[in-house]
Simulated scan of single mutants.
Amino acid sequence: MPKEQGRKVVARNRKARHDYTIEDTFEAGLALMGTEVKSLRMGRASLVDGFATERDGELWLEGVHIPEYVQGTWTNHSARRRRKLLLHRHELDKLIAKSREAGHTIVPLELYFKDGRAKVEIGLAKGKRQYDKRQALRERQDQREAQRAMSHRTHR
């Protein structure tokens, strides 16, 4: 029985959902060093510049910033090192094949602990154009205004 139960979110990449259309999501494990886990348990990480690349048939997470552990010694990790993503082979093959298509990339969406193990939710993404971003923003704003008008009407 694991010591921790449930899901504890460490970091979210909200910018990714704004900049990309997420077509599919996967949950992957992370190969981490001990000081990285301790730093994550303190709730410190940034996924903003993160992306995944394929190397020798494996996926590697790059650009994710996990700051050095404060009480760490010479065994501390480098903050932006490349980290291996742990996925099933069929998931890896599917992701690698799709990411090779033009305009597709793999971005981290969320970093969290699930039952005591560090996991990252990665998304197969396609870049949005500027007008798509503006249109999505306009739709959200219209929906918010309609919701506000409906709630204002029910309160009277």
Rank of each mutant, 00 (worst) to 15 (best):
G50L: 03
R82A: 12
F26I: 09
K84I: 04
T154F: 11
I66Q: 09
G63R: 06
M42T: 00
I22W: 07
E110Q: 15
H88M: 01
S99Q: 14
Q147R: 14
G127R: 07
T154I: 12
E62P: 00
I66G: 06
S46V: 04
L85N: 00
V9H: 04
W60L: 13
M33E: 15
E23M: 05
G57R: 10
G116T: 01
E23L: 12
R144L: 12
L61D: 04
A136C: 02
Q141Y: 12
E36D: 06
I22H: 03
G123K: 11
E36R: 07
G6F: 05
E4V: 02
V70M: 08
I106M: 08
Y20V: 04
W60S: 01
R83Y: 08
G123T: 08
H77S: 06
A52F: 00
R153H: 14
R81K: 14
L95Y: 08
E68L: 04
N13K: 02
L32Q: 08
L109V: 06
D49T: 07
R129W: 01
M33N: 06
T154R: 15
K94S: 09
A16Y: 10
N13T: 04
R129V: 07
L59C: 08
L61A: 10
S46Y: 05
L32T: 04
H88Y: 05
I106K: 00
E4D: 13
R41L: 14
A16M: 09
D115C: 01
L124D: 06
S46P: 00
S46A: 10
V9T: 14
E36A: 00
Y131S: 11
V107K: 14
I106D: 09
A52E: 05
G123A: 07
R148A: 12
R55E: 11
A149G: 03
A118W: 03
L111M: 10
S151E: 15
T73Y: 01
I66D: 09
E62V: 05
D132C: 05
A125C: 12
Y69A: 09
R144H: 10
L32G: 00
D19C: 03
A146K: 15
Q130V: 07
E68H: 06
V10T: 02
V70E: 13
L30K: 01
K98W: 00
T53L: 06
K119I: 06
R81H: 02
Q141I: 07
E91H: 14
D115S: 14
H90A: 12
R144V: 00
R14W: 04
I122T: 09
T53I: 15
K38W: 06
L87K: 07
A149M: 07
K128D: 08
E145D: 11
R81G: 11
I66H: 10
M33C: 02
N13Q: 02
R156P: 03
A45I: 01
K114G: 08
S151V: 03
D132R: 09
D24K: 15
L61S: 11
E23K: 08
H18F: 05
R138M: 06
V70L: 12
H152D: 13
S39W: 01
